[in-house]
Amino acid sequence: MARPKLAEFTSANHPVRRIRRIKELLIEAVLFAAAASSVFVTLGIVYILVSESLPFFAHVSFTEFLTEREWTPLFAEPKYGILPLLCGTFLTTVIALLLAIPLGTIIATYLSEYANARAREILKPILELLAAVPTVVYGYFALLFVTPLLQKIMPNLPGFNVLAAGLVIGVMIIPYVSSLTEDAMRAVPGYLREASYAVGASRMQTAFRVVIPAAFSGISSAYILGISRALGETMVVAIAAGMQPNLTLNPTEPAATITAFIVQVSLGDLPHGSVGYQSIYVAGLTLLILTLTFNVIGFALRKRFREVY
């Protein structure tokens, strides 16, 4: 057996070893660059939204932006009040969450605490298909199925309305809420459950009094993700809610969200640097600030209630 042959490679100054060490360092550098690039995506988004919005505020005051009750940047006499768009965004999001959070939480509780492994393995991927359906298909569904269905109950409901859009978004985000909630609940160690069962608690009591409180931080991230998705959802509202900015809290009226407005402007001809061009960046920046605010809240909640088992 050729012992020196092997020993040769183990010598620290052998050229093969030195090349290998340089190669290792190079690979690590490349991989680090890939990981770091994701930060530049975020920085890029923030930088672009801010820098393209700044010219807008050169001729629109911040007070007008926040207090004006109309948003008509493309009219001959433009008005620049973000309130109607914010209102539409909040309205659709609230409707969606009113549907998705209770349903998502109940489903997660069932899958985590009641269903057996087999049922869970089948039901979870099927449920997740709800989040896989393209949003434009959901838009079609909201406009041409849900709205006509709702019109049977509410004959005065207009063809474009916030209610149908919000409900469909709600269905769409159920899996976001339920999957992450279930993950968080299943991460709660079995001994906590056993302790609860051992004093005679029922499944429901164990789920609601022991498991859910213990999984609180994970569940809060599930809700935050659901909120982010609902806030940023575009196609469903653009198709089914009409694209008319409308300062109302009545879900049976048509309204525009921030995202729908961006779509509406993008559909037209959009000269670089025009007011229309600037206004979609202002709208986008507002949306980004909204979602980031919720993400920061979620981060704070996770930090504060981090589970230590």
Binding site: I45, L49, T234, L288
Partner: peptide, 15 residues
């Protein structure tokens, strides 16, 4: 990366 997953897709389009 956690944050990026929550950023609305339309802002990617704006960028």
């Amino acid at each position: 990366i956690v944050n990026l997953a929550g950023i609305p897709s339309i802002t990617f389009g704006l960028m």
